[in-house]
Amino acid sequence: MANSKPSIYLQNTEEVKKVFECFDTNGDGKISADELGGVLKALGSDTSPDEVARMMEEIDTDKDGHVNLQEFAAFCSGEGDPYSSAEKELQEAFELYDQDHNGKISAVELHQILKRLGERCSVEDCAGMIKSVDSNGDGYVSFDEFKKMMTNNNNNNSNAKC
């Protein structure tokens, strides 16, 4: 499946599965609208129930009311989705982590989000995660660095959880 445009979606199957498992909070192998809304809320988004429903409708291609791993993987690969929409989705994800809206993600911001998602890690752990993608050494993740991390271009198989 060659594509002349660089994809800004998750491309690594294991990364897609890890993200899916973060959304699938009850571990039943599918993401419900409530689970999607809950994760978005935990990330600090004030996404309305109508917007969550629209997102579910877009991703739930078999229309069973849930998103399974295959549907999620297709969404992450960008199948049937315009490139510009992918850029917008990635920007929105970045903004959820960028709590103070200064255009960069700090270790403290990453720690706050992971803590809300139920992950147990220290601010120092988060600083290490940031260091692994911080190409300019400023101690933060910029949108460009975030985009590179999400596209897995550097293929550095991070062991970071959700």
Rank of each mutant, 00 (worst) to 15 (best):
S77R: 14
E95A: 07
S158L: 06
I8P: 00
G103C: 12
F75P: 00
T13Q: 13
D50K: 14
G29P: 11
P6D: 11
D62A: 08
V123C: 03
S84V: 12
I105V: 15
A127F: 09
C121F: 05
S77H: 15
D81P: 00
D134M: 05
F143S: 04
L110D: 01
E21L: 12
G139W: 06
C76V: 03
P82I: 07
M149G: 00
V19K: 03
A127K: 15
A160R: 12
K104I: 04
C162S: 10
A33Y: 10
A2H: 13
N12M: 01
F20L: 06
V52E: 01
M1A: 12
D98Y: 00
A33C: 09
G80T: 10
Y140S: 04
V67K: 02
V52C: 04
K5C: 07
S48H: 11
I8G: 02
N155M: 07
E15V: 07
I105P: 01
R54K: 15
G103I: 10
A53W: 07
E145K: 06
G137W: 10
G118M: 08
N153V: 11
K18P: 00
D34Y: 12
K104N: 09
T61H: 07
E109G: 07
S77M: 11
N159M: 06
G137R: 10
S85G: 12
K41H: 13
C22A: 15
D134C: 08
D34F: 12
L43P: 01
M55K: 09
D138R: 13
K30M: 10
L114E: 02
T151Y: 03
K18V: 04
G78C: 04
S45Q: 11
V141L: 04
S158F: 02
Y97G: 06
I31T: 04
P82Y: 11
V67Q: 05
V133L: 08
N156E: 13
